[in-house]
Design a protein around this nucleic acid. Structure first.
Length: 424
RNA sequence: GGAGAAAUGGCAGAGUGGUCGAUUGCGGCAGUCUUGAAAACUGUUGUACCGUGAGGUACCUGGGGUUCGAAUCCCUAUUUCUCCGCCA
């Protein structure tokens, strides 16, 4: 959520940036917000004045009662009854305006960084680099959904029976490979100073609002209505919300957390060949990294996070490319996002495996996560997060890229974790 | 799941209808003393909003109510603790 004072002071800049994100009706919404805020100020002043008067009278009544001037007190009481009605009226008015402002404010996306490329579709994303060698497969090479069946690694049909499409059952070496990747990712993150946390995978609505999934992505999350809890779409939600309503000290920063969780996404509206096999699932595993930093350090931090994720892909010997997302392809709350995509050799396409973003104060404003700087001034911290990494598409490209006529090679770095170096 | 108790500032913990944004201690910050530090002593120390300012308003877990006036009384939600039951 943008800060109202920031919008007021930088209206032109905000509009210019929102245009990069192709946010429709930006000007009319911003104008409505500012106008409502003017009304809010007026309403508060009226409410405060009435309350001040009532408070003063109550104090007088108290003194009169004490000194035995009962009759005078009774006359004053009559006066306050009238004031009370005004008070309620102004209060209701104020509350209504505030609710209206909030309702509009949460629909405004974060302002992108000025270096974000203009554009509307994934085709407009800027390719930052391409690393690694695209493998040339043998004649009989097949996509991963055939390999997982052939080597009995994943049973998609069984998942359909247990739950539905998009909930695969991993078996044998397939299951072990999952565990190996998770452990490898966590070990590497903790070796870089990230503190490992294990968090709930169901969160309440406050947490959903805190990181911006609500109200923007309401329909994308599984919702347990009986208890009004949401299954997390990413560990970002619980991990970042650990700092909701928290006042940090500057010496606490940067905060670096990592955590493994399953992730749940309804993916309403997705279908077709792009969702085959492991390409798009309703439940998948992911290790997430989250940082909270001082504002002036967040972009530097974003780069180190991106480099960290790249190092994982290099270790896994997967060819990848880095994209700087254009305004139209960025998420609601992000100010700058890098996507990392691995090459899927049998499908002949790039698969997104990580998204690394700087949210600046967009989340911390909602979370009310502040810190005291060296001058004793409190201000919002910046929050960042990135996938490091999401498993399914990593598995897809590992299997496809490393297939030989006899079986599948496991990258060296994973062998200590899997206990095998070949699947056949 | 049943019965009871509780929720106050960064922390601990007073406060049971008016003079309470809230005693006190610890912690933090500043100063005195000291070569420096510790100890001791002195002062200071919540957040948000409105107002050019003086100042005003709100907040004692959240929400509602009673009252001229609520941290204090009532209702409700949530959480915690104790006892009982159940249980990976």
């Amino acid at each position: 959520m943008l800060q109202l004072s920031y919008i007021r002071e930088n209206k032109e800049d905000v509009l210019k940036r929102l245009a990069i994100k192709n946010f429709k009706d930006a000007e009319s919404i911003i104008d409505s917000i500012l106008k409502l805020d003017d009304n809010r100020k007026l309403a508060q002043r009226q409410a405060d004045d009435v309350k001040a008067e009532a408070n003063g009278l109550a104090k007088q009544i108290g003194e009169m009662m004490k000194s035995g001037k009962k009759e005078e007190a009774e006359t004053l009481k009559l006066k306050t009854t009238e004031l009370k009605q005004h008070e309620k009226q102004f209060d209701d008015q104020l509350k209504a305006i505030e609710a209206e402002i909030q309702k509009l404010l949460v629909t405004v996306p974060n302002t992108p960084n000025l270096t974000v490329p203009k554009g509307k579709t994934p085709e407009d994303n800027e390719v930052v680099n391409e690393v690694g060698v695209i493998p040339v497969l043998h004649d009989k090479a097949v996509p991963h959904w055939e390999l997982t069946t052939k080597f009995n690694l994943i049973d998609f049909e069984l998942g359909v029976k247990l739950t539905g499409a998009g909930f695969p059952v991993y078996k044998g070496k397939g299951a072990k490979l999952q565990r190996a990747l998770i452990n490898y990712f966590l070990d590497k993150a903790t070796s870089k100073g990230y503190n490992e946390v294990q968090v709930p995978i169901l969160v309440n609505a406050d947490s959903g609002y805190g990181t911006g999934q609500l109200p923007d992505k309401e329909g994308q999350m599984y919702h347990c209505q009986v208890d009004d809890l949401y299954l997390i779409p990413t560990a970002e939600v619980p991990i970042t919300n650990m700092y909701r309503d928290v006042m940090l000290k500057e010496s606490d920063l940067p905060i670096k957390n990592c955590g493994y969780t399953p992730c749940f996404r309804r993916e309403a509206g997705s279908y077709g060949k792009d969702v085959r096999g492991l390409n798009r699932l309703h439940q998948f595993d992911k290790v997430e990294i989250v940082q909270i930093t001082q504002p002036e350090k967040s972009y530097e931090t974003l780069e180190t996070m991106r480099e960290f994720v790249c190092s994982l892909l290099q270790d896994l010997e997967l060819p990848y490319r880095t994209l700087k997302l254009c305004g139209g392809d960025m998420s609601f709350g992000s100010a700058l996002t890098y996507d990392l995509e691995v090459w899927s050799a049998a499908q002949q396409r790039w698969l997104e495996v990580s998204s690394v973003s700087n949210f600046e104060t967009f989340q911390t404003n909602r979370l009310k996560c502040k810190y005291k700087d060296a001058n004793g001034k409190t201000q919002f911290a910046h929050s960042l997060n990135g996938s490091a990494l999401a498993l399914p598409r990593i598995v897809a490209s590992l299997l496809e890229n490393n297939q030989t006529v006899d079986g599948i090679k496991i990258p060296k770095v994973l062998v200590p974790y899997t206990g095998f170096d070949f699947i056949d």
